[in-house]
């Protein structure tokens, strides 16, 4: 077995002009150029995208599931951040 494992890359595809790139999956490739070529073959065989980003998986920092509370709970009691919190009288019109 080869010990020369190709690194893992995460692939992001822009589905259509005007949309942001979205994570679609990962693949192995020796370098960035091949990662994009492989991504083309693996993830866009049916015109699923107009642009590809590839980034080595090891370069991604991710939050932990355990941090969920400290990261997202503080938003629970801040409903005023949503426009629907405020009642605007009908006579004011669209706002």
């Amino acid at each position: 077995m080869s010990t020369n494992d190709w690194p893992l890359w995460e692939i992001f595809i822009r589905g259509a002009h005007g949309l942001s790139h979205r994570h679609v999956g990962s693949l192995h490739a020796p370098d960035a150029e091949m990662a994009i070529k492989n991504a083309r073959d693996v993830y866009t065989r049916r015109k699923e995208g107009v642009s590809i980003w590839a980034i080595e998986s090891s370069a991604i920092a991710a939050s932990s599931p355990e941090d969920k509370g400290s990261l997202y709970d503080p938003a629970d009691d801040k409903v005023y951040r949503h426009p629907t919190f405020f009642d605007i009288p009908d006579e004011v019109g669209a706002m």
Binding site: M1, D5, G25, S26, L27, D41, V42, R45
Partner: peptide
């Protein structure tokens, strides 16, 4: 095109398996 899709399906699934802590080369082996 169909056979190429099968290769693609294998790759999607290997990627999913790898997120569980096994490497592609281990699976191939």
């Amino acid at each position: 095109a169909k056979v190429q899709d099968e290769a693609g399906h294998g790759l999607y699934l290997y990627c999913a398996a790898e997120t569980l802590g096994v490497t592609r080369d281990e699976l191939t082996e």
